[in-house]
Computed example of a mutant assay.
Amino acid sequence: MNRFPMTVEGEKALREELTQLKTVDRPRISQAIAEARELGDLKENAEYHAAREQQSFAEGRINDIEGKLSNAQVIDITTINKTGKVLFGTTVVLVNLDTDDEVEYKIVGDDEADIKDNKISVNSPIARALVGKEEGDVVVVNTPSGSVEYEIDEVKHI
């Protein structure tokens, strides 16, 4: 079975969503279905069909999250010795060698990736170019607008 890397924060977010779905959403949807049933004819009962659709979505998401958590390999980067090497879970400060602009990315699992929050998937082209490299190394990242050279300025275990 394949294990999927996940940060401590990613696992926590999934566990919180799972708790919300099981303890809040599931009972609320069941109640909505019960109330809609009391309205009579189910064929033309929009409330009933909407609640059943919500139930289907919620149950699917619960199964999805449980599957992800059961296959997760949670990696706490703060417990790993800092060597200056880019690993899953590290936060990497890069300097664009053409513009001297700095950018900082945290390398996370696919489900945690959020470019607005500077979290990139370990499977993204940038992360694949970085993983295994060390502070001071220069990496070339191929982007849609061409190749960009970055120097790895710092690797943080935060």
Rank of each mutant, 00 (worst) to 15 (best):
E59S: 04
G60H: 06
S70R: 11
V74S: 11
A51L: 05
Q73C: 05
S56F: 10
N63V: 00
Q73H: 10
P27W: 00
F57W: 12
N71L: 12
N71S: 12
R52G: 01
T79H: 10
E53W: 05
Y48V: 00
I62G: 02
V74F: 13
T78G: 08
R52F: 05
L69R: 08
G60R: 08
L39I: 04
N45V: 03
H49T: 03
D64M: 12
P27F: 00
Q54Y: 01
I65P: 08
A50Q: 14
I75H: 12
A34Y: 04
I62R: 03
R28Y: 00
K43E: 13
K68R: 14
A32R: 00
T79Y: 07
E47Y: 08
G60P: 03
S30T: 01
R61P: 06
G40D: 09
Q54G: 02
R61K: 15
Y48R: 01
E47W: 04
A51V: 01
E66W: 11
K43A: 12
G60M: 06
R37E: 15
N63T: 05
I65K: 11
A36Q: 06
A50R: 12
G67E: 07
S30Q: 13
A58Y: 02
T79V: 07
R52M: 14
A50L: 14
R61M: 11
E66A: 08
E38H: 02
I65S: 11
L42W: 11
